[in-house]
Design a binder for these strands. Structure first.
Lengths: 132, 132
DNA sequence: ATTAGTGTATTACTTACCTAATACACTATA
DNA sequence: TATAGTGTATTAGGTAAGTAATACACTAAT
């Protein structure tokens, strides 16, 4: 799996990893039961301490997206689609909530906020498609 | 001006102050040229170090919302409506941008994202009106 | 049992950030 | 020019978070 780490972005490495793996799982880039890259392998590849990888995996496990098998490795969890949608909804809700609060406090109307969202959406959505 | 500080929210005090004063200015709760509460007064009232207040004011000055008059005090800046709209747009853009990226990475459609935004908007918007 | 391969608990280091204490600098006014 | 009222530069202390080093624990296969 392709993983890109920016050591100078200010975003914690384990979060960069989480985000990318989560994305893969959410969009079926990684399939149920599929074995994840070894902690040590990934650590070596990204030139990072194994604990940093382990931390990312642990959080993903807490989210229910990943399963541990002791002494064996980590696997993409067998998540029912319902549950996946639920996780998706929760993550979406938390970020949208923040945005809404900020927008309202700025005195931005609902219409304006939606327009802005559409604009940004289109921007990244096309980029994303190009990459694929 | 009513200011509410939550010492246990994890959100830095100076940011809580910034956000509330900015909101007042953005929504005309504070008028151009109006004198802001003294650093020391506000510090005493909120039971916080004066530097914390000063820090909040400094950032607001950097945003162009506040003006210093040495030895005299701080005042709401005389900001043209254009500029106010520009600041508003920038702040909105940055937060919406984050939300959009997250949503797209979660595989959330534009329609779903907008629905979520509407929902959260209504939630807080009504609360806000009740307070006023 | 031993070995090679897994993940991780514990500990410690570093860094960034927030807050506070203190002393200083500026302005208006008497 | 003295004074009382402004804001703040500088310094220091505290805390939390991210990363890394090390040693340990588990599993499968020999």
């Amino acid at each position: 799996m392709l993983l890109e780490i920016d050591h100078h972005s200010g975003v914690p490495i384990y979060r960069q990893i989480m985000r990318q793996i989560r994305q893969q799982i959410m969009t079926d880039g990684l399939r149920h039961e599929e074995k994840l890259e070894t902690v040590r392998d990934l650590a070596a590849r990204l030139k990072v301490n194994p604990m940093t990888i382990s931390k990312a995996y642990s959080f993903l496990e807490a989210e229910g997206l990943v399963e541990r098998k002791r002494g064996v490795g980590l696997f993409v969890a067998k998540v029912p689609k319902d549950r996946l949608d639920q996780i998706r909804a929760e993550l979406l809700s938390s970020i949208i909530d923040k945005a809404a609060i900020t927008a309202i406090q700025l005195g931005v109307s609902e219409t304006e906020a939606i327009e802005s969202l559409k604009k940004h959406y289109k921007e990244y959505d096309t980029k994303n498609r190009r990459q694929k």
